[in-house]
Amino acid sequence: MRIILLRHGQSLGNVDELAYCRIPDHALPLTGLGEQQARAAGATIKELIGDGPVAAYVSPYKRTRRTFELLGVDAERIITEPRVREQDWGNLQDPAEQEVLKHQRHAFGHFFFRLPNGESGADVDDRVAAFLDGLTVRLHEDETHPKTVLIVSHGLTIRLLCRRLFDWSIELFESLSNVDTCENRVLDHDGTGWKLDRPFDQWRDSPDGTVQHS
């Protein structure tokens, strides 16, 4: 069994934070570069999928759906999956307030800090856990479900998907950096457990001393 995690291509929000003031987060489009990244990633993703069937679970946000479309992957199943969406920061955002919240979130911790009118990292972790529970059942018990899965999602959500699968500590999760836009991570199941193809970058050592052993 294989799970391929892919972050969306560069979006307008990645280059213009004021875009969040006039466009809902879920509706932010890819930039021109983001579209190029998604097209270029197609060959890599197809090689990782191989010749067998694949099921694609795609965040409902515009930037993730467009990224999947541009990959050109012929998936046997395509499921729009809200549980792998971005962390909810609320509706149209005030730039001054968001700057304050980012500093507070960094000081408090990305996992437990709850955004006003939005989610904490722990909230995302909960919905990711529910998604993974259902996916695990389908992979093991549904003979018709492809054994290769592509998940097109977002930076923090991808880190939390791995945190849940590998039971990483919260301290380790908060020490990891997001993958770059259109960067992937691959998880393979060897019959005993999941293995991660390569670690995430870390901006500091985990305070509790744990590391990214899968």
Rank of each mutant, 00 (worst) to 15 (best):
Q93C: 06
Y20L: 11
Q10I: 00
L132V: 11
H189P: 06
D197P: 02
G90L: 06
R164K: 12
I3C: 08
G134N: 11
W89G: 04
V54P: 00
L18I: 03
T157V: 09
Q10A: 01
D51M: 09
G209A: 02
Y20C: 05
R83A: 03
R83Y: 04
D205I: 02
A41T: 02
G72A: 05
A38F: 10
H145E: 13
T192M: 10
G134I: 00
V73S: 10
D126F: 04
E174P: 15
E81Y: 01
D180T: 13
R105I: 07
F200D: 07
L33H: 11
A96S: 12
Q87K: 09
D190W: 12
L101W: 05
F173H: 15
I170L: 07
F108C: 00
L18Q: 14
T136Y: 01
L33A: 13
H26Q: 07
I158C: 04
T148Q: 05
T44H: 14
V124M: 01
V100C: 02
A56C: 13
L172F: 14
E119T: 03
V179N: 06
R65I: 08
V149F: 10
E47A: 15
I170C: 03
V152P: 02
P82Y: 00
W194T: 01
L92T: 10
T136C: 09
R105K: 15
G34H: 05
G50K: 15
S169A: 08
H110C: 03
F200Q: 12
P53G: 07
E76N: 06
E99P: 00
D190L: 05
E141G: 01
H8V: 07
I79K: 04
W168L: 00
L30T: 13
A19F: 03
E35I: 02
L139V: 14
L12E: 12
R105N: 14
A129V: 03
V149Y: 13
V211N: 05
S11W: 03
G13T: 06
A130Y: 09
W194D: 13
L101D: 02
L5T: 02
K102G: 03
D142V: 10
D123W: 01
